[in-house]
């Protein structure tokens, strides 16, 4: 029983990272109807920025906040510079744009900080959390920070003027424009937020998987799996999907013999295909009907 609780909690901890990735993917998907394949690379880049800031002697939390701010600005800049001009282009062109972004960010990260594995500090340490045997303090920290982030987003998108304007711009761009909302900037803001959420995820998972330019590749696939499971049209669903995927991954790794670490990505792949096969709109998504 203790093993089960232990694994579920550990699953929620990594699941919260997948939830963040899923959420940032869904935020951009909702705004521009495209999947950001470079989300993982952007998050990795942010984690490296944080690492660099700390090497320069800035303490963890100021570096954390600075990184989130930088990532926000970078997200806005990418939208303005790259995807705004592609807004009316075909799906193919947009996919090409994201692939280009993936290749550039990955390569620049590798060139700047090289491909050796680096250690990333955790502000929470790795002792047992409050003396409990179930979970260590970094895992608890991951869950806590993600919880705070989600609470902040919930309040921001639900109760502030800017947040509501962002949602209006995404759900009914035409009407939003008519009541004076600057839809273009709201989309850019969405990019900034998504990029910041990715940065938080990157910084939280880096102490676990170690910092290297390809560290988020697999995690993004899990984020996608979470987003698909929850439904690409539902941010709350994406978060829940991410958590479920985290728990599911840990339980399979523990209880299915032979399904260790090396089967992680194939499992995520199978999950994506199964969900898309049997419930393409995810658990919480809406079925989008298209006019001919």
């Amino acid at each position: 029983m203790e093993l089960l609780t232990n694994q579920i909690l550990a699953g929620i901890a990594t699941g919260s990272i997948y939830a963040c990735m899923a959420l940032s993917v869904v935020m951009i998907y909702q705004a521009i109807d495209h999947l950001n394949f470079a989300q993982g690379e952007m998050a990795t880049f942010s984690a490296f920025v944080a690492w660099q800031l700390m090497r320069w002697g800035i303490p963890y939390w100021p570096a954390f906040i600075l990184t989130v701010t930088i990532s926000f600005a970078a997200g806005v800049a990418i939208e303005r510079g790259l995807f705004r001009p592609l807004a009316n282009a075909s799906i193919l062109t947009n996919v090409a744009g994201f692939i280009a972004l993936f290749a550039i960010v990955n390569s620049v990260t590798g060139m700047t900080w090289d491909f050796t594995i680096k250690e990333f500090p955790s502000p929470f340490g790795s002792s047992q959390f409050l003396g409990s045997e179930l979970i260590n303090s970094h895992q608890a920290g991951m869950i806590g920070v993600t919880g705070l982030l989600l609470a902040f987003l919930y309040c921001f998108l639900g109760f502030t003027k800017v947040g509501l304007a962002m949602r209006a711009a995404v759900s009914t761009p035409e009407s939003a424009r008519l009541i004076g909302i600057n839809v273009g900037w709201m989309v850019a803001l969405g990019w900034g937020l998504a990029s910041s959420i990715g940065a938080v995820a990157g910084m939280l998972i880096a102490p676990v998987v170690f910092l290297e330019p390809n560290m988020m590749g697999g995690i993004l696939v899990y984020g996608f799996a979470g987003a698909v499971l929850g439904g690409l049209s539902s941010p709350a669903g994406a978060v829940l999907g991410g958590l479920l995927v985290g728990v599911f991954e840990n339980l399979i790794g523990t209880y299915v013999p032979g399904a260790g670490n090396e089967l992680k990505l194939p499992i995520a792949l199978a999950l994506i295909i199964l969900v898309l096969r049997f419930r393409p709109d995810g658990l919480f998504g809406r079925n989008v009907v298209e006019r001919v």
């Binding site: 692939i99 280009a100 972004l101 993936f102 290749a103 550039i104 960010v105 990955n106 390569s107 620049v108 590798g110 060139m111 090289d114 491909f115």
Partner: peptide, 10 residues
Amino acid sequence: KGLSGAVFGV
């Protein structure tokens, strides 16, 4: 070294 990804992307 490692530049080819960036060149591809650009």
